[in-house]
Simulated scan of single mutants.
Amino acid sequence: MRVWIDGICKAIEALLAACLAVMVVLVFGNVVLRYGFNSGITVSEEVSRWLFIWITFLGAVVALKENSHLGVDMVVSKLPPAGRKFCLVASHGVMLYILWLLADGSLSQIEINREVTAPVTGASMAIIYLASLVFAVGAAVLLLGNLLRVVTGRLSDDELITIQESEEAAVLAQVLPPASAAGREAGSQGGAR
């Protein structure tokens, strides 16, 4: 299952890079045309806005998979493994409920906006709300996978904290081994006081 999820996330990352490249070309091209030639690409702003929405939601799925979302783990990191498991299960339960609300609202908005067309492209406005539905489904799959790993005992004690305290800690965790990153983070916090 992890292999499938890793493959899907790699595909999403490639799609995100392509969307970002299209956004850059459209926006930069539109600026050059507007200021240099007093014209422009009429669909540029609308398509760029839609791509930005999709990049945000798809990027959140990848960040959830990589445990890159920022949060406060000050209390959870001090708990024993049983307490960490309880907090993980409780937080995932709350997130799954919120994702269900998001999916339900997205489905309603897709239905409402199915026949509404965008002013420039004429495409259905339901495309915008489809992004939040895709996020809700993708994030729910990841959270349910984590819960399954907790129940079956395949989640290590290090993986019980699924957030990063700070961006610096996330970078250090990727570069240094876990013991070195924790020691360096504690040292940098001690020096800042």
Rank of each mutant, 00 (worst) to 15 (best):
V171P: 02
I41G: 01
S124V: 05
S108N: 09
V94M: 08
L96F: 02
V75R: 07
G29R: 08
I8L: 12
E66K: 09
S68L: 07
P81C: 14
A181M: 10
V31Y: 04
V89Y: 01
A181N: 09
T162N: 11
T152H: 13
C9M: 09
L96M: 10
W100N: 04
C9S: 02
M95W: 07
L102S: 00
S91L: 04
S91R: 06
A11V: 14
K10V: 14
P119D: 02
G83H: 02
C87F: 13
A179M: 00
V116S: 14
T162R: 10
V151F: 14
L160P: 02
G59K: 10
S44D: 00
K10F: 12
C9R: 02
G71D: 03
S166V: 01
K65L: 03
G29I: 09
V22Q: 11
V171N: 03
G122R: 06
P80K: 06
L58T: 04
L79Y: 14
V137R: 04
H92K: 13
C19A: 15
E167F: 04
D157H: 06
I112M: 15
S77P: 05
L172H: 05
P178M: 04
F28E: 07
G83P: 02
S106M: 05
A63F: 13
I8N: 07
E167G: 03
A173P: 06
P80A: 09
N113Q: 08
S124F: 04
E111T: 11
A14I: 15
Q109R: 15
L79Q: 14
S44G: 00
L176K: 00
A21V: 05
F86K: 02
L147R: 01
I8V: 15
V175L: 10
K85C: 12
D158T: 15
I55T: 05
D73Q: 13
I112L: 15
R2E: 12
H69W: 10
G153N: 10
A136H: 05
V22K: 13
G40I: 10
V47K: 03
Q164V: 14
R114F: 08
M23W: 06
